[in-house]
Simulated assay, not measured.
Amino acid sequence: MAVSSGASTPGTRNPSPWESGAPDRPPRPLRPHLSELRLSAFAGHRGVGLPLGAVTLLAGPSGAGKSSALRAYEALARLAGGAPVGEVFREPVACVPERVAPDAQGRRGFRIGCTADGPEGPVRLDLAVQAEPELRIVGERLTARGVVLLETALRDPARRVVQAAWHTGGQAPVVRAPLSDDRLGTALLPLRVAGTTDGERQVLAAAEQMVVALRSVFACDPLPDRMRAPVPAGSGRLFGGCDNLADVLWRTRAECARRHDRFVQEVAAGCAGPVVDVFAEPAGHGTVRAVLDRGDGLRTDFARLGDGELRYLALALVLLTGPGVLEVDPPGEVPAALRALTVLADGLDRQVDAAQRRALLRLATKSARDGHIRLLGAVSDASWAAGQSGVTVVHLRA
């Protein structure tokens, strides 16, 4: 896919551990975050590097590879969380670029990678995955400040391990050991590296920055048809399809009045008719349903709302909430002040009108400025976002 970028704020590459705050605010810790997604050979992409800002829109027609780019990002996040490669890539052959012929041993695969910025400066992760004849990670490289910190390679196809070498900076420049071929080696380093030398501590710091940058990811594509019916009262954690939105509203309205008030204001700006509240109420048999309070004694059940309204209010809630409400797996050992939640929104402009798109973008940029979220959204056309401060637009062409 061809790529061009029209961006106003690319991801920072400042190696300092502090961000500059507003004049009346103290500096904030620089949260690890991705500044680039690389699709070296993945699905329809070859040699593609996507710059990522705090709010990034991937724009292009159907077939340009927007959804596959989001899938690659989510796959890296799941691997960083410790998921085995077989759970992450359910259909690995679909990730292999078309017209890639197998080698003499019948092997085909794909390559993806990313750059995570943070206190350690830019840290690069590049990954080679074999899809056929069997799924396995066959190569991984972690680099920072010009030093290869971890490198793995498949030496013996008959064994389910790769040979790994990581930097020490000591008398022995590297340590070599086998690692499993179905897990991301970077995520395993804290269990294998002692951290007794400056080099090993650099390895651990870079690996932690990469894992933290990737772990807090919420892939979101609201499904209006599943948001209309009452749902069982449960954990109050929002699923990626937002079908349990009523259950989440049941929880959030009681737990955070200030944020709920902001959510109501956003809903009122994007839905037809007056809106003075949005909440869930019991619907019998342990279920709850979501309604709009119109302020005159009339309540509108979500079953009566249009697809665009439902997608809009679900996305608005996502952009206003966080890991405690969204169904994500953040690194619990890292303080919340050092984590950045990234929302992956496929079809961000699907079924929503022009005013709703602009409202969502305004909300995303404000949440990003506050350090609350980062957003990577796929849209068919980004002309409506042209000139918007704080937004990176990457154009993909089939």
Rank of each mutant, 00 (worst) to 15 (best):
P10C: 09
G49F: 05
G332P: 09
G199Y: 15
A213G: 11
V148G: 11
L344V: 07
E140Q: 10
P274E: 04
G44L: 03
P17M: 08
R357P: 14
L375S: 01
L320K: 02
E74H: 00
V318P: 06
T287F: 12
V394E: 07
V138H: 09
G387P: 06
G81A: 14
R159F: 13
R124P: 11
P274M: 08
S20W: 09
R299Q: 07
L238R: 03
R258E: 11
A280H: 05
A69P: 00
D221G: 02
H372C: 03
V391C: 15
E281M: 01
V394S: 09
L344F: 12
T392I: 11
L317F: 15
R124S: 12
A75G: 03
A316P: 05
N244S: 05
P230L: 04
A194F: 13
A2S: 14
R31L: 06
A205C: 10
P122K: 04
H372A: 05
N244V: 14
E74R: 00
S68K: 00
G295D: 02
W250S: 00
G109M: 04
D126G: 05
R228V: 11
T252W: 00
L396F: 12
S20L: 02
T196I: 14
G270V: 02
G60L: 04
A64E: 06
A104M: 13
F110A: 00
R289K: 02
G306I: 13
D329Y: 08
G297R: 01
S216V: 07
A337G: 07
A382Y: 10
V148K: 14
G387N: 10
R124N: 13
E208G: 06
R358T: 14
R192Y: 06
K66Y: 00
A345H: 05
A104F: 15
T321K: 01
P224T: 02
F110H: 03
V267Q: 11
V394P: 07
V88A: 01
